[in-house]
């Protein structure tokens, strides 16, 4: 094997690793004491379903290491995928959803967003329970590379202190 071939193989491996690090990685989370919080899902027929952070974590959990517009240093965000949550709640076929924060901030997310970009509903940061002062307890997080590459994703979609998700 020539020196050039070895270098090419190393470069390819580094690229694959980097690509893998950018996408949400499945992770098994140990139970912790979460801050008191509640996420209410409101379906189009008006029925509701409530999730605590711990209940959310019964879905498949993932980790994303990324910065946010308010964090210069990257952090490990753990949580569940919005697409999984919507699928479980029966909102995955909606054209759009409305996400409302505890401080009454609200935004509309189109279906194309969660179908094309892995959107994480983060319940932990750096292994700790997510607090309000860290924009928790429930925060919408998108890997910064995906966020930058997506023509749909915007800062308004990175909602912190998420309280409700409604069918739009």
């Amino acid at each position: 094997m020539s020196k050039m071939s070895v270098l090419a193989a190393i470069a390819a491996l580094a690229l694959v690793t980097a690509a893998a690090a950018d996408t949400p990685q499945p992770i098994a989370l140990e139970p912790i004491n979460h801050a008191e919080a509640e996420l209410i899902i409101v379906r189009s027929d008006g029925t509701k379903q409530s999730y605590t952070p711990a209940e959310l974590e019964t879905l498949a959990t993932y980790r994303v290491r990324t910065t946010t517009p308010w964090r210069d240093e990257p952090a490990d965000f753990d949580g569940v995928l919005l697409s999984d949550l919507l699928a479980q709640s029966g909102l995955h076929l909606e054209d759009a959803i409305k996400v409302i924060a505890e401080n009454e901030f609200s935004t509309i997310m189109p279906r194309a967003l969660w179908e094309t970009v892995p959107v994480l509903i983060a319940t932990r940061v750096d292994g700790r329970a997510h607090t309000r002062r860290e924009r928790g307890p429930i925060q919408v997080v998108i890997d910064m590379d995906d966020y930058t590459a997506s023509p749909i994703a915007g800062e308004k979609h990175l909602v912190w202190m998420v309280a409700r998700i409604e069918a739009e």
């Binding site: 517009p69 308010w70 505890e102 607090t131 309000r132 002062r133 924009r135 202190m161």
Partner: peptide, 16 residues
């Protein structure tokens, strides 16, 4: 407490 947290985050965002 929640309102205090909101203000904290708002001030932090403002500063950012």
């Amino acid at each position: 407490r929640a309102a205090s947290d909101f203000l904290f985050v708002r001030t932090d965002t403002f500063r950012q």
